[in-house]
Amino acid sequence: MHDLLRSYAADLAAEEDPPEAIREARARLLDHFLHTAERADKALYPQREPVDLPPARPGVRPEHVESHAAALDWYRTEFRTLLAAADHAAEHGFDAHACLIPQCTATFFHRSGHWLEWVDACRRALVAAERLGDPGLRANMHRGLGRAATLLHRWDEAEDHLHTALRLFREAGDRVSEGYVLVNISGIFEIGSRSTEALPLQLSALELFREIGHAHGQARALTSSGWSYHLIGRHDEAVRHSMDAIALYEGLSDLPGHASAIDTLGLAYRELGRLEEALTVQREGVRLFAQSGDRYYEAGSWSDLAETLRRTGDVEAARAALRRSLAVFEELRHPRAGEVRRELDALT
């Protein structure tokens, strides 16, 4: 619609339609985007804990986005509109929509690299959650802020938000979310090179998930602890935890989680000198990350694969893998692009 035509339509609505009709139209529009986003989020991440949504108003027809590919296409097309819808909701007193639209977009935020937009959306949503006095929504917004800040390497900010989320989830008795946040907090220490601090959190989460019989949580905790074991040089334990995670992921629908466990297994094999096994496993990890749309971890897995290729003596293939990694990190405008560029320059 042309801008002038849209402006004229808005003027006509303001002049001719009663305020309650305009508010109901806004509510139906927001319901459409919220309920479609929730369907798309389920398609991207079927193992994610369900989001408790109010029922859609009569006449609302959410779109059908039932496959992973359809969900990615829908988010890529409607992402900016979702951000605008969440802002519009907050501006016009639809505080629940202002919180729930970002919550139902979290998987796409995480995988697509839109982390700055994730921070902005969660900050506005947190204000709306505080107006509502809803501790569950507050906890989820703090968790979103913490996860985004971790990916942006804002360590102190991430730790503050995630510890607040952990406290709120514990107060609510939400043990599943408590376990996931323990894993999220451990991620600060992993990326920030404090792996010895990460491991106890991951093992606590693993124990919690085993106690409540939560298979996906166990897979996530095993993947994270396998990575920490790799980082501190305990590669046999990294292999064991990664293989246990892979066995669980084979019965679940979580492509990035499965890819992470496979990637860690490949790194552990590499450090144990099992280079051919490492290459086979890491190539599968790269493929799954690319299929999932998780751009950040796809870039990291290309870099990991490059180092394994270098150790086998295949310098040209290593250089090609680093170029793939660099292209994605540059697309994401991530600081790791500089690190990969230096690795590429040093490769001889």
Rank of each mutant, 00 (worst) to 15 (best):
F33G: 04
S292Q: 13
I212C: 06
A129K: 13
H92Q: 13
R61S: 06
G187M: 11
R240Y: 04
E66G: 05
R26S: 10
L267Q: 12
D304V: 11
P50N: 05
W227V: 01
R6I: 02
A238C: 04
L206P: 02
P102V: 03
P54A: 12
E38C: 12
I212H: 04
A317E: 02
S325T: 14
P46E: 08
P200Q: 08
L100T: 02
A84L: 12
R310D: 02
F189D: 09
V286R: 00
H64F: 00
L29N: 06
R154T: 07
L29T: 12
E20L: 14
W155C: 01
G136C: 01
R210T: 01
P55W: 12
T81P: 03
L162N: 07
A327D: 02
H92A: 13
A278T: 07
E190H: 14
Y269R: 08
R39V: 14
G187W: 11
F108L: 12
A86I: 08
D263E: 15
A259N: 07
Y297V: 01
E330Y: 01
V340T: 01
R154G: 06
D254N: 15
R6G: 02
E277V: 12
A125K: 06
P18N: 10
G213L: 10
H32S: 10
W74F: 10
E16I: 14
L208K: 13
L34N: 01
A13W: 09
D345N: 05
A40M: 06
G192N: 14
A278F: 11
H163N: 11
R311G: 05
D345M: 04
R138P: 03
R111L: 13
T107P: 00
S204A: 13
P50H: 10
A10I: 05
Y249W: 11
